[in-house]
Design a protein around this nucleic acid. Structure first.
Lengths: 108, 108
DNA sequence: AATAATAGTTACTTTATGTAAGTAAGTGTA
DNA sequence: TACACTTACTTACATAAAGTAACTATTATT
C-alpha cells in the first residue's frame, strides 16, 4: 500500500497532528510558553517521547526552544506563528469533544 | 507518566483522531459512502489496518457498515451523524495545510 | 565530597503497524 | 464436478514506535 489520492499537503498536516502526543503538546503550549517538566506533567507523557516530539516540532518550525541559563538550566518551549496558527483546529476538536464525547465513555 | 491535567473529553477526541489513518479514513468518507477497497486504494492503507480502524470507528459510532448482498458481497461504509460532525475539524486542517505546508516540503 | 534540580538519554520491553499470503462465500467457466 | 474470480477480510510474521526505569551532564548548595 502506498500511493493515495488525497492531497499531499493535507496528508502532511494529518501525519503531523496524528503523531501520538503532538496535538496535546501543542494544545498545552497554547496556554503560553512552558518548560520541559511542565509539559511532561500536564500532558502526561514520558520524557523520552516528549524529547522526541519537541525535536520534531522544533525542526518543523512549530515551536521555539529557548535556553534560560539559570541554575539549574531551564528550557522554555513556545509556539511559533506557524504553531499558533494550529489553534483553530484544536478549538474545533475541543468543541466537538464537548458535544460528542460523553463523560461516561471517557476511560481513565 | 499518566495523570494529565487536560480535559479528558478533549483527550479522548485527540486519541481518536491521532490514531494513525483514522482522520484520513473519515476525510475520505466525507465524500460519501464507500466500499472497503475504495477506501483502501484512495487512502493508501493496508487491508489489515483498515479493517481494524473500521471496526473501531463503527464501535465508536462514527461510521455505519452496510452489507450489500450482491455477488460478490460488498460492504458500504458511511459516516454517522457523529462522524459527519467531524467535518469542521478536517476542513480546518485542510485550510491550515494550504497556508502552512509548502509543496516542496511534502515528501513522497 | 555528597546532594539536589532540570533536561534530557540509554537500554530494554511492550504495543502498533506493515507485508504478504491465506480464507470464506457466492458466481461463472471448462 | 473442479477450478478460477471477486470482495472483504484474517493470520503469521517482521519492523517500527512508544512505554518504563535507570542513568548522565551541568551547575550550585550544604
Amino acid at each position: 500500500m502506498e500511493k493515495s489520492v488525497i492531497c499531499p499537503r493535507f496528508e502532511k498536516a494529518i501525519s503531523l497532528l496524528s503523531q501520538r502526543w503532538t496535538a496535546l503538546v501543542i494544545y498545552q503550549l497554547l496556554q503560553g510558553p512552558q518548560r520541559f517538566s511542565e509539559i511532561q506533567t500536564s500532558v502526561g507523557i514520558s520524557g523520552k517521547v516528549l524529547s522526541d516530539r519537541l525535536k520534531d516540532l522544533e525542526q518543523q518550525g512549530i515551536i521555539n526552544r529557548k535556553v534560560i541559563p539559570e541554575t539549574p538550566v531551564m528550557i522554555e518551549y513556545s509556539l511559533t506563528e506557524k504553531g499558533a496558527s494550529l489553534e483553530p483546529i484544536l478549538r474545533e476538536i475541543e468543541k466537538w469533544s464537548q458535544c460528542w464525547i460523553l463523560p461516561e465513555n471517557v476511560e481513565n
